[in-house]
Amino acid sequence: MSLSSVEASPVRNAGGIRRKGRREVRERLFAAALLGPALLVLAALILYPLYKVVDISFRIGPSMNLARLGQQPLGLQNYARIFADQTLWAAVKASGLYVGGSVALAFLAGLWTALLLNARLPGRRFLRTVLLLPWAVPGIVASVIFSWMFDGSYGVVNALLRYTGISHADTPWLMNADSAMLTVIIATAWKAYPLITLTILAAMQTIPGELYEAASVDGATPAQKFRFITLPGIASAGLVSVLISALWIFVDVDIIFGSTGGGPALATSTLPLYIYNEAFQFFRMGTAAAAGVVMMIAAIVASGFVFGAIRKQRF
């Protein structure tokens, strides 16, 4: 495709075979030279670390001395060890709850806000900026804000529940397992939904208006129009955005790190948090790397399945 640009160049037709060849070589060299810095970044900061983490996951024995980590014997003990570790399975369960809950909530919020923004309502330009803003809020900032809002003694959430008469319980949200998970799910969904809004909104705007007009002529109710026109129109874009959100939520640590820190009693200690603690709290690089490799493979396999399912459906 881009080779054709070289062929189409009128300069090349003007020259003889010799000049043509030399020009082609210079062209290729220039194209490669532009890639130089990126290839360097790629090799040193992406491919080598990837190789390194796989390598570390097979290194057994103590890992306190990082310089000698590469000389430790190879073996499968790290993998055997993590799979026998109850904490890992607890982390897998926590991850399932966290990702499932956050994605479901974010999708509902994303769909709702996309529907609102797609209707031609007054003030939507300004309100669109407001609705998309949480996307840009750093995870750590979101997590400290939600920790404060859900604080047991002076948190505004408990105050709102009191004002509205819903509950006078003064729930210490972050102190017990279920409500702590709910809190981090709400914070994560708040940050995650704008991306889903954007994708669904874009898909909605590609649905031809005539479909809705024809449905109106046929006497369809708004609910029927949503069910049979809007929903099929946004299904594949919605699924892709859900998958992308699920992937980043699955590997994200910021929001949990800044609020519960994985507690209480590991209730919100998801897989990436488990990995981080293995590596930087207990300094077991081998098992941390092994769990990290498993996490990466799980993410790739899961997304492969979902993409495969989407392809087959052909929305």
């Binding site: 990837l50 990082l66 980590l69 994200d252 996490m295 990466m296």
Partner: peptide, 12 residues
């Protein structure tokens, strides 16, 4: 590539 994975080789 997740940051929570590459941080291990980066640190090393």
């Amino acid at each position: 590539l997740p940051a929570s994975l590459v941080i291990i080789p980066f640190f090393v």
